[in-house]
Design a protein around this nucleic acid. Structure first.
Length: 452
RNA sequence: GGCGGCGUGGCCGAGUGGUUUAGGCAAGGGCCUGCAAAGCCCUCUACCCCAGUUCGAUUCUGGGCGCCGCCUCCA
């Protein structure tokens, strides 16, 4: 049973579904620009959680939103002199292509803010009717003082939050900590009708409405980046609490990607594009890097780290080739049981201790190689297959065996002939040719092995 | 100012009151190999500073220094 650190309580909580699927809501991107590697990290983290739960037999219902209307999108559209919708659609397309490339499973449902405006208006109206929200000059605000337990996720009292507020009260807000549920449209801005005049929903409102609409009350886990803890998640929760609705049971927050010690964020302007990373490296290298850090710890992503991870991945892939090669003539009957799956699970279940879990996988890889090298095939195959299946559970499936062109196979055959004739010069020339065709060449007992 | 967190070997990055090592990458040596690749074996080595608790602390407590996140949009 997976247990994760729950931000709301500060302790480990069991991630068990109640009587249906495990319901997971993850705050997605605002699509005003291309995704960066910080986005890559959080999607990978929740992808790993999802895959791991699924690999253990749990059915997961994964919902993650796309914020397709907000100030930044409008700004971008204005500066580029084109429709805001076009900006949103274009960047959303970039998002999914990057996700696909990273091997991140698409959420089961991807709600868009603009599809839920009516529901959001209804929620705002209800909060106003209850006297918890108030209409103001430029929008409708939630009066945080009326929400019991505000500050749960921030781990701060309302008083200290108020004292620490860095934004001066504008006069339209009764308290600096109050937040906008509805933003009234300025001339020329996109808008939807509401009893408070045309406008658009506040960011915090969309996630409450969509998560409750699609997952229902008391869904199991709500996740996002550590920077969303406060105020975004706090404010989502505040609205649900104010309405007397049960919200997420548990909260998870992943650590941020940092650059030279500062978090990576579009607002900071130090982003590296995710697409670029996926082009320059096997996307699994980044996944491995993410797995080698604890999900709650901040992490630095540098070129050298990605290269190290790529090297490590080579060990996994070369084992996969070795296993595949010997699967045909493998020993019949039962193989000795590997202890890896059990130990791996132990580490994963303990707050997703992927660094330790991956260490176990790499230990198993070494042990499998050692067994195979020493001729103990049953032990090698058993440990090796266990390692591959653990890797697969977190999305690190070895790359599919590459298709080798006929021409290359022919060259390899010729090379084998040259080698058995001990014509080393010819053999080396043929290897050179194969390398130039883009293949890696390895000699094995079964002859020349090619892969990309 | 408030709240939360961090400081580990050449690099990344776990973990632990002591006895046997995280793991990956890099480096050096060896084995294997026609050469190479892959693989295996071995080696290197750490716990920010100070004080305290303890038979014993990198691990606990207190203080200090340094760094980061949140309190504003942000994954």
């Amino acid at each position: 049973m997976l247990r994760l650190h729950d931000t709301a309580t500060g302790s480990l909580a069991e991630m068990s579904a109640k009587n249906g699927p495990f319901r997971l809501y993850v705050c997605g991107p605002t699509v005003y620009g291309p995704p960066h590697i910080g986005h890559g990290r959080f999607t990978l983290v929740y992808d790993v959680i999802r895959r791991y739960l699924e690999s253990g037999g749990t059915t997961v219902r994964h919902v993650s939103n796309v914020t397709d209307i907000d100030d930044k999108i409008i700004e971008r559209a204005n500066s580029e002199r084109r429709p805001w919708k076009e900006v949103a659609e274009e960047n959303e397309a970039l998002w999914w292509s990057a996700m696909d490339r990273m091997g991140v499973a698409k959420p089961h449902v991807v709600p868009h803010a603009t599809d839920y405006v009516e529901e959001m208006v209804a929620l705002v109206s209800e909060l106003v009717a209850r006297g918890i929200a108030y209409d103001s000059e430029d929008g409708v605000y939630l009066s945080v003082a009326h929400v019991p337990g505000y500050g749960l996720l921030a781990q701060q009292s309302l008083e200290s939050l108020r004292a620490g507020a860095r934004v001066e009260p504008t006069g339209v807000k009764r308290s600096p900590v109050d937040f906008a549920l509805w933003k009234k449209a300025k001339p020329g801005e996109p808008s939807w009708p509401s009893p408070y005049g045309p406008g658009r929903p506040g960011w915090h409102t969309e996630c409450v409405v969509m998560s409750l609409a699609l997952l229902g009350e008391g869904f199991e886990l709500h996740g996002g980046g550590a920077d969303l803890k406060f105020p975004h998640h706090e404010n989502e929760r505040a609205q649900a609490v104010a309405l007397g609705r049960r919200f997420a049971d548990h909260w998870a927050h992943n650590g941020l990607v940092e650059v030279g010690g500062a978090k990576m964020a579009r607002s900071v302007g130090n982003v590296t594009s995710l697409e670029g990373l996926a082009e320059a490296h096997d996307p699994r290298a980044y996944r491995l890097l993410v797995l080698q850090a604890h999900y709650r710890a901040p992490m630095e992503v540098r070129e050298a780290h990605l290269e190290a991870a790529s090297q490590a991945l080579e060990r996994l892939d070369s084992l996969a080739r070795r296993i595949e090669e010997s699967s045909g003539d493998g020993p019949q009957g039962t193989l000795p049981a590997s202890r890896l799956p059990e130990r791996f699970k132990e580490r994963m279940d303990d707050d997703l201790d992927t660094p330790r879990a991956m260490a176990l996988v790499f230990e198993a890889i070494r042990s499998a190689n050692a067994s195979l090298a020493s001729g103990d095939r049953p032990a090698g195959l058993s440990e090796g297959r266990a390692a591959l299946s653990c890797a697969a559970a977190v999305g690190l499936l070895p790359t599919a065996v590459s298709v080798v062109a006929k021409e290359a196979l022919h060259l390899a055959e010729k090379r084998d002939q040259a080698r058995s004739a001990r014509d080393w010069a010819a053999a080396d020339a043929l290897r050179q040719q194969l390398v130039q065709l883009g293949y890696r060449v390895e000699d094995t007992p079964a002859g020349t092995r090619l892969y990309r």
